[in-house]
Design a protein around this nucleic acid. Structure first.
Length: 257
DNA sequence: ATGGTGGCCCGGCCA
């Protein structure tokens, strides 16, 4: 059995004590991190290595940045899409962890429907789908973990009306997510918890967490071969509380052999 | 109410 988690930490420098404490407490075997906001040269693997983890990092500066932390092996890392011409920022890192291909992804936010970043977001998802097919990843035991910046359906947001006309819930974004699912991937949390809301992000502003004004945008999409082995999917809401939390909570799946 | 909070790094930008 191994557990695989995804956690947008909103700066690994700011969140390092929380991340290390969470690893110590949960002993989660594989953790995909997003928004490390570090360049590779500024990333220090030693605190993870001291806890028995291997780690790969892909970042080039103060924005974005993704990492994979694993205690069950970490080999064959692939940074980006393997095509620098099509890579917008450091938003995807893939490795083999204990026989499972694991991708840590941080999708573009999109900002607003009329912003050029919205089209870039949709293009990024197109490129992701193309790259997955090219690599044959949908036919392998594979999980795409990360902050997709898309709420898959209306039950995944606190107030549909309040978000009308905003990013994260638009038809085109949801279609982009559906395109990934059509490759055979399953939204593991929703598949295992049809009734739970499972929010994973709450705005820092306006007391959103305490009012549970959140969204479920941090997903673990499992390929067909892997989906059959996933027995549990949980959100650790406690990690959103306390001193200097990220605005995202970790989401964890349990995978049996 | 076009705010609010928190991260980047020090004047806005980004989420």
């Amino acid at each position: 059995m191994i557990r695989i988690a995804t956690w947008n930490v909103n700066s690994l420098r700011a969140r390092l004590p929380r991340v290390l404490a969470w690893l110590e407490a949960t002993k989660t075997e594989v953790v995909c991190l997003q928004e490390t906001k570090l360049a590779d040269g500024a990333f220090d693997p030693s605190p993870f290595e001291a806890m028995g983890y291997q780690v790969a990092h892909h970042g080039d500066g103060q924005w974005n940045g993704v990492a994979i932390v694993s205690s069950v092996g970490l080999v064959d890392p692939i940074a980006g899409f393997g095509r620098k011409d099509l890579e917008a920022g450091c938003r995807i890192l893939t490795a083999n962890c204990g026989g499972i291909r694991v991708s840590s992804v941080y999708a573009p936010n999109g900002r607003s429907l009329d912003d050029p970043q919205y089209a870039i977001k949709l293009q990024w998802f197109e490129q992701l789908a193309t790259w997955l097919r090219e690599c044959g990843l949908p036919e392998q035991p594979h999980v795409i973990c990360g902050d997709f910046n898309i709420a898959p359906s209306d039950v995944d947001v606190y107030d549909v009306q309040a978000l009308e006309g905003m990013t994260h819930v638009s038809e085109r974004e949801r279609a982009a997510l559906e395109q990934l699912l059509s490759l055979g991937y399953s939204d593991s949390f929703r598949a295992l918890n049809p009734e739970q809301q499972g929010f994973s992000w709450w705005d820092y502003r306006g007391g959103a967490f305490h009012q549970n004004h959140g969204m479920r945008i941090d997903l673990l999409l499992t390929s067909r071969l892997l989906s059959a082995r996933v027995t549990e999917a949980t959100v650790d809401r406690a990690a959103r509380k306390g001193e200097k939390p990220s605005d995202h909570a970790p989401v964890t799946i349990t995978v049996i052999d």
